[in-house]
């Protein structure tokens, strides 16, 4: 039963706060092997045969849910996907009640997305199986950060001292937070960029991530960057007085060809999707030679397979 592994086996993936560089590298290794499996004519292995994976998405998400679903199926799991319409929040059923129900149905894994930060921790306290956080509020989106890391690593190799610029609505972004953990652990130099209303005081970030740089000018931040990652701008941000207009945002923080040109010559352009083309990223950049946005999607399935595999076996030996 015991498999060679350097870290204690995890039961849940709720965040990346306490993941070491070694453990992150293990995931990159597994994901690369999973990617090979996905390139085969028969894209399936029996790792999770007979196991039940329940996707519970209290917030709509086409791509993350599909990605987890395909990943679980490629590992031969039985998959049940529940969307926001199916979960009974509207009926007044509590989160804990729902978890107990899914448990009684025999679930081994819960993959969840929820609008409230911290919700997966509550679920983990009431579920006997494993919980994978597919995004909670503004807090964490570990599988996204891992697939981003995988994609960067594929293109750039070791990330130590690489300059990674994350631009957009940092304050409300779970993608930014999980990337900050993964990237700083791997030694990358991270710059988060956006207007002060979408970041907040620098000291609040630097207290947790001491080396993170805060920038309010993408023109400056993009210079010499190895990675330019744009985040989706939620339209409702304008209503809260956080932004005056999309036009003004796009002019100062949109990822355009000029800004890409000021970065390193082999810079990669990333976006977790779905994109507002013409707002945070220009169409020519999104589909241009530096873009790895489609690769991120492909790598997402491999990385999510790797996460299931890692939880199931505690091993990087596939």
């Amino acid at each position: 039963m015991s498999s060679p592994t350097t870290t204690p086996r995890r039961r849940h993936v709720l965040d990346l706060d306490d993941w070491s560089a070694d453990e992150l590298r293990s995931l990159l290794t597994i994901a690369a092997q999973m990617k090979d499996i996905l390139a085969r004519p028969v894209k399936q292995v029996p790792t999770l045969r007979g196991k039940i994976v329940v996707n519970m998405f209290w917030e709509d998400s086409t791509r993350t849910r599909s990605s987890f679903e395909l990943a679980a199926k490629a590992l031969s799991a039985n998959v049940l996907s529940l969307g926001a319409k199916d979960t009974s929040v509207k009926k007044g059923e509590s989160l804990v009640d729902t978890v107990r129900t899914v448990q009684a149905l025999g679930a081994d894994y819960i993959v969840m997305r929820h609008g409230q930060s911290g919700a997966p921790y509550l679920v983990a306290q009431h579920f006997r199986g494993s919980v994978i956080n597919g995004g909670d509020g503004r807090h964490a989106h570990p599988s996204q950060a891992l697939l981003d890391l995988f994609t960067m690593h594929e293109r750039l190799g070791e990330l130590a001292d690489k300059k990674v610029v994350i631009v957009g609505d940092i304050l409300h972004s779970r993608v930014a937070r999980s990337n900050l953990w993964a990237l700083t652990t791997m030694g990358a130099k991270v710059v988060v960029c956006g207007p002060p209303t979408l970041i907040g005081p620098a000291k609040y970030w630097q207290s947790t991530w001491p080396k993170v740089e805060i920038s309010h000018s993408l023109d400056h931040a993009a210079e010499g960057a190895d990675v330019l990652m744009a985040l989706r701008l939620q339209h409702e941000r304008m209503e809260g007085g956080l932004l005056p207009s999309l036009r003004e945002y796009s002019r100062r923080f949109g990822l355009n060809a000029t800004r890409v040109a000021s970065a390193n010559s082999n810079v990669i352009v990333m976006h977790p999707g779905p994109m507002n083309e013409g707002v945070e990223i220009m169409p020519d950049v999104a589909t241009g030679p530096h873009s790895v946005i489609e690769t991120q999607i492909t790598n997402g399935v491999a990385m999510r397979m790797a996460l299931f595999y890692y939880l199931a076996t505690g091993s990087e030996q596939v």
Partner: peptide, 19 residues
């Protein structure tokens, strides 16, 4: 305040809770 459940600061920033 807009219903924020905890103090604005480093902890809220880390946990992704509105401050």
């Amino acid at each position: 305040v807009r219903g924020a459940p905890m103090n604005e600061g480093a902890v809220a920033t880390r946990l992704g809770l509105s401050g």
